[in-house]
Simulated assay, not measured.
Amino acid sequence: MSGTTITQSATVSLSRAARELELRRGEFDLALHLGCVRSVPDEGGGGRRVTRAEIDRVRAETGFPDALRERVKAVGTTEGAALLGVTNTRFTRLARLGLVVPVKVYLNRYRAVVWLYLAEELRQFAADQQNAPLMSGRTPEALRDQLDDGLDLRPRNWRGRHMGFLLRQTEDPWARAAVVASLLDPVQVAEIVTDPHERAHLNRLRPAPVSQAAPDSPGAHIVQRITTADDPDEISWLRADLGQSVLEAREDRPAPRPAADAARVPAPDAAQVPAPAFAPVPSVGPPTGAPSSTDRTSPPRAAHTMQGRPAAADFPITRREAARSRRLLTWLRGRGPDDAAYSARNSPSCTTETSRRPSRS
């Protein structure tokens, strides 16, 4: 194998990497999103994996594993307020104003939305002296008016951060476009990506949902509202980003299409098709291409058919000739291979539509 190819034995699964780095799975997922641990795509199509060299690098860092755990520690409203030294209500206001950005979201057992924040970022926010007026005293009037109008930037800030996490995990143009499309309503995506095959390809590459709720359940609808852009400015920005991403993906390669939509080879011209060899009429069963019982004017055809044969209108025939040919065909079906005389005089063929004895013309 080439030197740039990572073999399967040189990588481990994500679950095993989490155990070797002494992290819980939620902590390990945050470590991947934040870039603390780098992963590589599985060449076998089984998701992402972590190289042995990356595990050795992380384990060799100073203060492992406590330092790594502190970098990926996520806290809720109560613990976050304690880190800032404010009440839960003030902390929620700061989060709604977008001054502290959530890093994770989930639904609890009561289907209530729970936002999590990085403890390290909250410590940095509290240490900045410019933020001191926001954590004590009266909230500025302009900010209070925005809160009274229902401003809540937590979903939008989380979507932007989550999209950045997903984009860092792939270099494929279509997969990157699928990340942007996953944050838009399907109607918005259909207006930007008009080709149904391209939309289907984006849906196949759509990132995994952030919740394990069953489809069409109340929890799934709540998560869908959180993960779908609803602010006009955000929608406009995502639409422009999706259009540009799809253009770049088309330049890289076209979206896959079903085989039925591929260009078919045109049928050969009838004049170029050689005439078929003579084939005897079988003694049992109707021959292929025999006239139906409802067709009283069509002439009999050979036992085989071919594409590009002349139409029936090219052979004008009278009704009497058609009836005579049909009786002759009935007589031929009743003959045995070695019987020179007519052997089915009183037992006409069961494959014909008439039981009348054929004439001896």
Score class of each variant (00 low, 15 high):
159 R>C: 03
11 T>K: 11
22 E>Y: 08
78 T>Q: 14
230 D>Y: 07
172 D>K: 06
240 A>M: 04
331 W>P: 00
317 I>K: 04
78 T>A: 15
109 R>K: 12
138 R>I: 00
104 K>D: 15
315 F>D: 02
156 R>L: 11
246 V>T: 01
187 V>S: 15
113 V>L: 13
333 R>V: 03
268 P>H: 01
49 R>W: 07
137 G>A: 02
138 R>Q: 05
79 E>F: 00
164 G>D: 13
189 V>M: 09
34 L>R: 09
352 T>L: 09
333 R>D: 14
179 V>Q: 08
306 M>I: 09
48 R>F: 10
59 R>M: 01
142 A>S: 08
98 G>W: 03
34 L>Q: 10
319 R>M: 05
318 T>F: 02
69 R>Y: 04
252 D>L: 01
201 H>L: 01
240 A>L: 12
8 Q>F: 10
319 R>S: 10
202 L>I: 05
68 L>V: 05
88 N>K: 12
105 V>I: 07
275 A>T: 14
308 G>Q: 00
129 Q>P: 14
278 F>P: 03
257 R>M: 09
84 L>G: 02
230 D>P: 01
168 R>T: 06
115 W>T: 06
263 A>N: 06
303 A>D: 00
353 E>R: 09
345 R>Y: 14
10 A>M: 08
288 T>V: 15
121 E>L: 09
47 G>N: 10
208 A>I: 11
221 H>K: 11
318 T>C: 12
318 T>I: 00
45 G>I: 01
77 T>M: 01
234 E>K: 08
30 L>N: 14
234 E>I: 00
72 V>W: 06
243 G>R: 04
129 Q>M: 06
158 W>K: 05
286 P>I: 13
261 D>P: 02
45 G>W: 07
193 V>R: 13
190 A>C: 04
264 R>C: 05
81 A>W: 02
12 V>S: 06
262 A>M: 13
184 L>E: 02
305 T>K: 12
167 L>F: 09
189 V>A: 04
55 I>L: 15
250 R>V: 11
154 R>A: 00
113 V>P: 05
241 D>C: 08
84 L>S: 06
300 P>L: 09
282 P>C: 06
32 L>C: 07
234 E>H: 08
194 T>V: 14
124 Q>F: 03
318 T>P: 05
66 D>P: 03
188 Q>T: 14
136 S>Y: 01
207 P>G: 02
61 E>Y: 07
141 E>V: 03
107 L>N: 04
118 L>Q: 11
49 R>T: 14
226 I>R: 02
111 R>D: 15
71 R>C: 04
194 T>A: 11
169 Q>E: 14
143 L>E: 12
71 R>Q: 15
291 P>W: 15
284 V>M: 13
300 P>A: 02
11 T>I: 03
19 R>G: 09
266 P>N: 07
106 Y>L: 08
316 P>N: 06
20 E>F: 09
165 F>S: 13
4 T>L: 12
84 L>A: 02
145 D>W: 06
166 L>E: 12
333 R>F: 10
107 L>G: 06
200 A>Y: 11
193 V>F: 14
94 L>N: 03
122 L>I: 04
258 P>R: 06
48 R>T: 12
298 S>H: 11
29 D>N: 10
250 R>W: 13
237 W>K: 14
66 D>K: 15
31 A>G: 08
264 R>M: 10
216 D>F: 11
322 A>I: 04
64 F>W: 10
132 A>C: 05
203 N>C: 08
